[in-house]
Amino acid sequence: MTDMTYTIALMGNPNTGKSTLFNVLTGLRQHTGNWPGKTVTHAEGECRHRGTLYRIVDLPGTYSLYSNSADEEVARDFLLFQRPDVTVVVVDATALERNLNLALQVLEMTDRVIIAINLMDEAKKKGIHINTKKLAVKLGVPVVPISARNREGIDALLDTVDAMAHGRINTNPLSIRYSPEIERGIAKLLPLVKDVMGDTYPARWIALRLLDGDTSLLQALKQPPQPLIKEGNAYACCGSIKSI
């Protein structure tokens, strides 16, 4: 048994089953409330797996991290400032190409990512086959097939989270290359960003957002949001999952 608690962020597009996965992991008793200074609701719970306690944060469902809405700002700020130990991006197996857009954006911000391909049962019904091993090689991070509502693949996902949290998995995330003009802009901004921010934040991602004129990000960097404060009693751990 370890006293160390790791923070796990759940991200994904709306209707990918992300909150269903959250409920499976954390059981019935969870803490809900609003993010500091926002009307956006957040849900948080705990899960114990192989003797380690995990704080699970269910981030708002978003299609991007481009600061176009309060939901997107909350998700972006949590990854940027709270720096979770592992980020699980939940994607819909029946709409993989569309869902991977968010996953690629997350990979630009952090390398501690696991892709959980949910609704594998629905994909099977539609005759969709996903080669998760090839996809993992392409993306450079673990890819785990699951069906949250049927509780299939949950143990494998938790084992992967456990391995990444404890440093047993090395990742090499796919780096998106943009047009020559954008890449030149990034190259010019990178030294300035690193000089001001150091290694605290993902410099390439920040440079890209600055090129896009993301004023919301600039404001957040000047005044980072306050961390979440846990309220109430301890949460239930992992519901009825047998691998506690």
Rank of each mutant, 00 (worst) to 15 (best):
residue 96 L to K: 10
residue 97 E to T: 14
residue 98 R to L: 06
residue 101 N to P: 00
residue 102 L to D: 04
residue 104 L to C: 07
residue 104 L to Y: 15
residue 104 L to G: 02
residue 104 L to M: 15
residue 106 V to G: 11
residue 112 R to A: 05
residue 112 R to C: 03
residue 113 V to R: 06
residue 113 V to F: 08
residue 114 I to M: 07
residue 115 I to M: 09
residue 116 A to N: 08
residue 120 M to A: 00
residue 120 M to N: 01
residue 123 A to S: 03
residue 124 K to N: 00
residue 125 K to Y: 08
residue 126 K to M: 13
residue 127 G to R: 00
residue 129 H to F: 13
residue 129 H to S: 08
residue 131 N to R: 07
residue 133 K to V: 11
residue 135 L to G: 04
residue 135 L to W: 10
residue 143 V to A: 00
residue 145 P to L: 05
residue 145 P to C: 07
residue 145 P to T: 04
residue 147 S to P: 15
residue 148 A to L: 04
residue 155 D to S: 15
residue 155 D to Y: 08
residue 158 L to S: 02
residue 160 T to S: 07
residue 161 V to A: 02
residue 162 D to T: 13
residue 167 G to T: 09
residue 168 R to E: 14
residue 169 I to W: 02
residue 175 S to G: 11
residue 176 I to Q: 11
residue 176 I to F: 03
residue 178 Y to R: 10
residue 179 S to N: 08
residue 180 P to G: 08
residue 181 E to C: 06
residue 184 R to G: 05
residue 186 I to W: 06
residue 188 K to G: 09
residue 190 L to H: 04
residue 193 V to K: 04
residue 197 M to H: 08
residue 204 R to C: 09
residue 205 W to K: 03
residue 205 W to V: 03
residue 209 R to I: 05
residue 210 L to I: 11
residue 216 S to K: 13
residue 216 S to W: 06
residue 217 L to H: 07
residue 219 Q to H: 10
residue 220 A to S: 15
residue 222 K to Y: 10
